[in-house]
Every structure is written in C-alpha cells, then in structure tokens.
C-alpha cells in the first residue's frame, strides 16, 4: 500500500495496465511530452514509448473516431479528453459509433476502449473547464460510466475500465485530484464496475453521491447530529441498485447530490428507481441537491452553484422535520 493522491492513483493505474497488457495504449492531447495538463499520464511516454503514449492533434471527434479504428486493429485505447467540456465534439463519435459498433457487428467485434477525463467544478477555472457531463454519456446505450471519489477507486475503476470488453467512460473529479489522499494497493488492482461503496454507515437518512460530491456528503454527515448513510455509487452504468435500495429500506429518507444541472441529471434516474422500487420504504420525498439549470458559472460565483454542506444539510433537515 502507498498513500497517493487521486491523480497519482490514475497515473499508477495507467502504468500498471500498460505494463500488464501490450495492447493498451494511451492517446490524447498533451498526454505524451507534457504528461497531460494535470500530469495524469506523466512518465508513460518515457517508459512505454511514442507508439503507446501518443500526442494527437487537437481534435476530440477524430481522437475518439481514431480509437474506434485502433480497436479494429487490435488495440485497447485509453483516450484522454483534456477537460469535461472539451469532450463535447467527441459525442458525435460516441453516440453514432462507440455505443453502437459492437451491436452493429452482431456482437462479433469488441470495442474495449476507455475514455477518461477530469470533470466537475470548484477549481476556479475559465469557462468550460467545470462541467459535469455524465448524463450525456450515461444516456448513450452501449456505454458504461464510472466515477471514482477516492484514490483507490480511481485506480481500481480505471483498471476495470481498461480490462472491460465494452467502452467505458471514467470521469475523474478534478476538484479532489490532489486533495483526496488515501491508501492505494500496489500493482494489479481492480474495483469491479457496478458495485457501490458505502462510504459511511448510518440509519436516519441516505445520502447518494458520486465524484467530488461524496466528500460533501461525508462532511455533511459529520456536521449534522443525524445518522447519515453515505453511498458512493462509483458506477452509473452498470448501477448497483441493491446497495441503494437496501439503504433506502433502512433509512426511509434519501437525498441525492450531484454537481450537474438538475433536469434529466443522473439524480432523476436514481429518484425514479427509488420511486419504482422502494416507495413504500420512504418516509418523505426523495430530494435532490444539484447544480442549477444554468450554464456552469463564472468562477467568482461558482460556490453559489455547487452543492454545499449547507445545502445538503438543509435538505436532510427538511426530511427529518
């Protein structure tokens, strides 16, 4: 075990997986010589060479479309999108091809590609460096989506994504890239997709979150004189429904937290799941604390946009009357 930041854990996973499987390659903008704008890919070029850590032209659709072709040539590409909002051009390829090509081949060809990108707000960055686009991705059939909140999960989920036979998108919470620290197993380490993590056990209310919002929920749980269970869902698709439903059965109260805008955000899907499967367990409405239905704001006022301990606490208190 080594204590690493979340960012160092991502880098560790990439080194481990490229070492483990000669078909794995990393490509993206500035991932080679610079080692990535956040240094997530640092050292890969030196260790694995320019054929397996590739600086590409600045073209996200071409990058992801190129990765489709690389899969056909037998590679397992790991594509870095430099920032959340910079990934939008790649949605064309994601929707029209990445999520459909396996199906299109009658299940006979696999597209084991991974897309990873830093996402989320709170880092005092210019416009279009703070978005939470996970709903666009998870709404696309054929795609799996995972979001770690701890260094160990950042390594283990990324390793699972790279080894998975389906296309997987990993969103890395950049707000806690360097502040989330924790023990990370050395060498081979996989956290299976589709297993939620109970970050904190409790009995009165269930707080459901992913990414940087898990920490907000944990801080809320510490600040309140209420027994909060915090569930880090880790994987949006496949989704660990049982862990969520078990917790709701225990607490009867739910607050879902995400940074993305509210309407048609992933919280709506979670709320619908709970309504369909656990409505008789509920002692109050399923509440959401989310970003607002506005463009992600100028950074001088971004704290007013982001779900906070205060906003989550208010939701919890409203449920407990």
């Amino acid at each position: 075990m080594a204590e690493l930041t979340l960012l160092e854990a991502v880098n560790d996973a990439l080194h481990t997986e490229l070492e483990r499987d000669a078909d794995v390659m990393v490509l993206g903008e500035d991932v080679g010589r610079a080692g990535g704008v956040f240094r997530a890919t640092a050292g890969l070029l030196e260790r694995f060479g320019a054929g397996r850590c590739v600086d590409t032209p600045l073209a996200e659709a071409g990058l992801l479309g190129g990765a489709v072709g690389l899969c056909m040539a037998g590679w397992r590409p790991v594509v870095e999108m430099q920032y959340d909002a910079f990934s939008y051009p790649c949605l064309d390829q994601l929707i029209t091809h990445v999520g459909r090509y396996h199906w299109r081949t009658g299940g006979r060809m696999e597209f084991p590609l991974t897309i990873r990108m830093p996402y989320g707000g709170g880092v005092r960055a210019p416009e279009l460096h703070g978005d939470s686009p996970e709903a666009y991705y998870v709404h696309t059939p054929g795609i799996k989506v995972a979001i770690p909140s701890t260094p160990a999960d950042a390594k283990g989920l990324l390793a699972a994504a790279i080894r998975d036979p389906d296309p997987v998108v990993i969103f890395e919470p950049k707000l806690v890239y360097r502040t989330a620290r924790g023990e990370v197993p050395e060498g081979d380490y996989v956290v299976p997709l589709g297993k939620a993590r109970i970050a904190r056990e409790g009995t009165d209310v269930t707080l459901i979150a992913y990414g940087a919002m898990v920490n907000v929920c944990e801080l809320t749980a510490e600040a309140l004189d209420v027994s909060c269970e915090v569930i880090d869902i880790r994987s949006l698709r496949p989704l660990d429904e049982e862990t969520i439903l078990d917790s709701v059965a225990k607490t009867g109260r739910v607050v879902i937290v995400h940074e993305a805008p509210r309407t048609a955000g992933f919280g709506a899907e979670l709320a619908a799941l709970i309504a369909e499967r656990a409505i008789f367990d509920l002692q109050g409405p399923v509440l959401r604390v989310t970003g607002y239905d506005v463009p992600y704001p100028y950074w001088t006022i971004e704290d007013a946009y982001m779900p906070s301990v205060e906003r989550v606490s208010a939701a919890v208190r409203s449920l407990l009357g």
Partner: peptide, 10 residues
C-alpha cells in the same frame, strides 16, 4: 473517416 485513419495507423 477517423475509423479508417485509426485502423491504418493502428
């Protein structure tokens, strides 16, 4: 077109 580029490159 990007698929073909990626395949050829790969």
């Amino acid at each position: 077109v990007p698929h073909a580029a990626g395949l050829a490159w790969g």
